[in-house]
Computed example of a mutant assay.
Amino acid sequence: MTAENTSPDSPASQAENHTGRSDVRAAFKVDIVVIGGGQAGLSSAYHLHKLGLTPGRNYLVLDKNTGAGGAWQHRWPSLTLSTVNRIHDLPGMQFADAVDTRATEVRASSAVPQYYAAYEQKFGLPVYRPVTVKVVCARNERFRIETDRETFSARGLINATGTWETPFVPEYPGAGRFEGRQLHTRDYRTADEFTGKHVIVVGGGVSALQLLDEVSKVTSTTWVTRREPQFREGPFTPEDGRAAVALVEDRVRRGLIPGSVVSVTGIPMAPALEAARARGVLNRLPMFSEITEHGVRWADGTEQKADVILWCTGFRSSLDHLAPLQIREDNGGIVMSGKLATQVAKDPRIHLVGYGPSASTVGANRAGGAAARELAGYLGLA
């Protein structure tokens, strides 16, 4: 069931049928609600499907987007299949089955939604959209999930909201005085809009370097990072990946705020970055100490005039809607348990997929399977 409006099979219609009147405030009951229709959410739904659960009755996916694709549909237009870091297949269906991967210049923001839509259709996943979850509260033995449309009642939750909705911009003295433009990776569209302007790119992740490379081809740039970037000259092996995930998993099992998997793997020195280094673009500077009206200033008094500050400073987990459940520790972290650290230790009825060690796309696939099996088993559904 894919509901982009209220159809005879939609939760709104079923709530009306249960009450005998049109009352969208009546809670639609389901065993498991998956919040989020991106990679982590679809992976979780696939594994619930493989367990033999009934779509729409045993489980339901709530997605705030108007169409399939998760956060990929919002990525900048210049991110193509040839420039994206990597797109991992969802379980049970290869990317190439839905998209011609030979056309490398196809936008990722259109190719991935095409793949996700085909995936949802192939397995008959019950994705209900667009619906935004506002808040989740505990109600006796169930959860009450309030949205901008219907209200839902579930016995268990798989939260797969990712990070795209929560961009992070650090606070720096003078930010409010800056007379130029400030934007985050999430707001970036094309380098051409910066032609003739000096752009300060802040951040040392893969996205920061991709945008630095693009923008530096049309205008002057300054690159600053909080820590010295670590580049990988050699291949990234499966052993490297497992070691990186283990480090992040250890943190969340102890209730610490997770670092990103990428932060412990290093940045692969791809051909595009080799070319950028040859052009002199990768001359990294340490973080400035304050922002001025016309640029930035370092502690030693050095200044750099700028028209734009592009914050490629990452994202935070989008979990505000779960605040009433009080799953966080005093330090802001969440103690995680379960086979792949997807289960919230304080409440085994809640699983977080796409959090901590499962924040990467390949990690989300494995975690979706673990969360589905563990939660279904805990609830006596499998």
Rank of each mutant, 00 (worst) to 15 (best):
G205S: 11
R251T: 02
S260K: 10
S263N: 07
F231H: 00
D240T: 02
R251L: 05
R226P: 08
G196I: 04
L273C: 11
P229G: 01
G255I: 10
E228I: 08
L247V: 14
R226D: 09
T190H: 09
P271V: 06
I267M: 15
A270C: 04
A270D: 09
G241T: 05
S207K: 13
F236C: 14
V264I: 08
Q230S: 12
A208T: 00
V262E: 15
L211F: 02
P235T: 02
V218K: 11
Q210S: 13
V206P: 02
G266Q: 10
G266A: 01
T190A: 06
T195G: 11
R232V: 12
R226A: 04
V215R: 05
R251Y: 02
T237H: 05
R232S: 15
L209S: 06
T222Y: 05
K217V: 05
L247Q: 09
V206E: 14
K217G: 14
R253A: 04
T190P: 10
L211I: 09
I257K: 12
V262I: 13
L273P: 08
I200A: 03
F231G: 03
T222W: 01
L212K: 00
K197G: 08
A272M: 09
T237Q: 10
G241H: 05
R232G: 15
V201Y: 05
V218N: 15
L273N: 06
R189F: 06
T221S: 06
S207Y: 11
G241I: 02
S260A: 01
I267V: 15
D250H: 14
G259F: 00
E228G: 06
K197E: 09
K197N: 06
P238F: 07
T225F: 11
V218S: 12
Q230P: 03
W223D: 05
S220H: 13
